[in-house]
């Protein structure tokens, strides 16, 4: 029998990483502060998850400035989009399989 969870992506197990991907897939570019606010997490916590996603090649980081303050924004990569869609599909298949 085919293992029903083989397509689930371990990286998206974390609620925060999954939240980041959900937001980035429908928004072209989102700033660190907006993500923080929407996911209701602390700076340090979010930053470590973002590094993880970036190292996996799922998101791209853009560093800019607004005046003197740094403004870091993120966008999703092709690979990230594909990985996230596969993950959702795997979740859907699990639900269908349970019925």
């Amino acid at each position: 029998m085919k293992n029903p969870i083989e397509n689930l992506n371990k990286i998206f197990d974390s609620r925060i990483r999954m939240g980041v991907m959900s937001i980035l897939i429908v928004n072209e570019e989102v700033s660190f502060n907006d993500l923080k606010q929407m996911l209701d997490v602390t700076d340090g916590n979010l930053a470590s998850h973002m590094v993880n996603l970036e190292e996996n090649g799922f998101i791209k980081v853009h560093k800019g400035f607004i005046g003197r303050k740094t403004n870091t924004t993120y966008s999703i990569t092709r690979a990230g989009e594909k990985a996230f869609k596969d993950h959702i599909e795997a979740l859907e298949n699990m639900i269908k399989g349970m019925k």
Partner: peptide
């Protein structure tokens, strides 16, 4: 067995994803 290593059942996770997509956009 299926969810031993993930804390959330798939339906809830999908609803979470949908909610965040909508709230952010």
């Amino acid at each position: 067995v299926l969810f031993m290593d993930s804390q959330h059942p798939p339906l809830e996770t999908l609803q979470d994803i949908k909610r965040m997509m909508e709230q952010s956009s």
